[in-house]
Amino acid sequence: MDPIEAFMQANALTTPLFPPTSRYHGIAAAQLTLPDGTTVAYLKRRFVPPPENFALLQEHMVAAGDRLDNLAARYLGDPQQYWRICDANGAMRPDELTETAGRRLRITLPEGIPGAPDAG
């Protein structure tokens, strides 16, 4: 192979599979070949950071009828960002966060973005 072509292939920019607002942004895809030769494509595992790694913006007390998509729209400006509320509260099942009125939910910044020193 031509050395320039090899360099271009090795250093090619790849288009992310998911936009930056997706919980799967940056997660690599992989393939598995089954014994029968069938190829199965999948995403590698996403590791959720511990909730204490997120800077707290505020808390929300759950009221009857609250929905995560509505809370994400209210606090984060995008209903599809509900997964950030899940991550911030260590929830594996999104519905569990709004099942009990009176529960306090953490509304946070994404991991790695520091909050104001006096926030909370």
Rank of each mutant, 00 (worst) to 15 (best):
M1G: 15
D2Q: 06
D2C: 08
A6Q: 10
F7C: 09
L13F: 09
T14Y: 04
T15A: 13
T15V: 14
F18A: 15
F18Y: 14
T21L: 14
R23Q: 09
H25T: 09
A29C: 10
A30R: 07
A30H: 05
P35R: 05
D36E: 11
G37D: 06
T38M: 11
A41T: 08
L43M: 13
L43C: 12
K44V: 04
R45C: 10
P50K: 07
P51N: 06
F54G: 02
L56M: 14
Q58R: 15
E59N: 13
A64T: 08
G65T: 05
D66T: 04
R67W: 00
L68R: 00
L68K: 00
D69V: 01
D69G: 02
D69S: 09
A72N: 01
A73R: 01
R74P: 05
R74K: 14
Y75P: 05
Y75I: 09
L76C: 07
G77A: 06
D78E: 06
P79I: 01
Q80I: 03
Q80T: 05
Q81I: 00
Q81M: 06
Y82N: 00
R84D: 03
R84W: 02
I85Q: 01
C86V: 06
D87A: 14
D87K: 03
D87H: 07
G90Q: 08
E96P: 01
L97H: 03
T100P: 03
R103D: 03
L105D: 01
R106P: 05
P110S: 13
A116W: 10
P117F: 13
A119N: 14
G120N: 10
